[in-house]
């Protein structure tokens, strides 16, 4: 059964959560992003965030362990209890995508310590195509706005505990997200060498904005940072991107994915084909952040649609 809360009570509800948890929610600072909430009034729920949630699970730089005088010092993972509020269906599914590939203890601990509260997407924009990506229902709590109330679906015991003091709903409110954009066909494995891709590749600056803002891009680098004078340092995991030449470079200087075309297509194909082959799920969650962030407005979704419509083998 769903729970209900008056919309005007939302800030008080969030404030009550902030007593026991670190609450992370969307805010708008020039662009919308997730931040640790200091004040419930800062919450900005009107549009999808451009910056995804992932840095709270996969920080830009994360210490794996410290060392001194050639001895490893174990890294203490702190277990702060957190709630993320205002996650859209795409954001929630992005975490499921990451769960299948990230297996190191720091990530798992952060996932276990975080309660996920979703929010129905009222206004998908012209870049959203989440309905094409076969997303799952995954949340601890999920808020549907209706009139002056939120109807709250409960997805887990952890979620149920948070709303146990709220009233039960008199009816059930569930809505499907309406998209303007659609990825018509995901069966693109044989289209890798299609000439249509060249137009996108020509526009690509290899600036890596798509991968940085993608909520499921998780590629990283492991580096050592050293304080030579103190004979100490740390091994860190740092965010990287398949769009960079340095990404596939090995000792001796050989770059295995050197051409811009192979790098660009690697991004698209990883999202739609490669990951799917392994896990039978799409890596792309259809949030459209890569399209929104692209400075040259590359729209690979349209490229796929046009490849497919030309052939006339639409599904």
């Amino acid at each position: 059964m769903q729970k209900i809360i008056e919309k005007k009570e939302l800030n008080n509800f969030v404030k009550s959560l902030m007593k026991n948890y670190e609450v992370i929610a969307p805010v708008k600072r020039k662009i919308a992003r997730f931040e640790i909430l200091k004040n419930p009034e800062d919450m900005y729920l009107d549009e999808i965030t451009l910056v995804p949630l992932k840095q709270f699970f996969l920080p830009e730089n994360e210490t794996l362990f410290d060392f001194k005088n050639n001895k490893i010092k174990k890294n203490k993972t702190e277990g702060r209890k957190r709630i993320v509020f205002g996650l859209r269906k795409c954001d929630l599914n992005a975490l499921l995508v990451l769960d299948r590939v990230m297996s190191y203890p720091e990530y798992i601990k952060k996932r276990q310590n975080t309660i996920l509260v979703g929010l129905y997407c009222e206004k998908p924009d012209e870049f959203c195509f989440c309905n094409s990506m076969e997303l799952e229902e995954h949340y601890d709590l999920f808020f549907y706005a209706s009139g002056d109330k939120y109807y709250i679906s409960i997805g887990s015991k952890k979620g149920a505990l948070l709303v146990r003091n709220l009233d039960n709903a008199d009816k059930e409110v569930k809505k499907e997200i309406k998209n303007f954009k659609k990825l018509e066909n995901k069966n693109i494995e044989k289209d890798y060498s299609n000439k249509k891709w060249d137009e996108d590749v020509e526009k690509c600056l290899s600036c890596s904005a798509c991968t940085v803002f993608c909520p499921t891009c998780n590629c990283f680098d492991i580096q050592d940072v050293k304080e030579l004078s103190e004979n100490s340092g740390k091994r860190i995991k740092t965010q990287s991107s398949c769009q960079l030449k340095s990404f596939s470079e090995v000792a001796g200087g050989k770059i295995f994915r050197e051409s811009r075309a192979s790098r660009f297509k690697h991004f698209v194909y990883h999202k739609i084909v490669f990951y799917n082959k392994r896990f039978n799920k799409y890596m792309c969650v259809g949030c459209g952040r890569c399209l929104r962030a692209c400075p040259t407005r590359i729209d690979w979704v349209e490229t796929i649609n046009s490849i497919k419509s030309k052939k006339g083998d639409k599904k």
């Binding site: 662009i31 992003r33 910056v51 600036c207 890596s208 904005a209 940085v212 030449k245 340095s246």
Partner: peptide, 17 residues
Amino acid sequence: QDPVCMECRKKGNACLL
């Protein structure tokens, strides 16, 4: 060897362009 954009976007900056 990476472009400035990589570091800039990682910081979550709005794109100046």
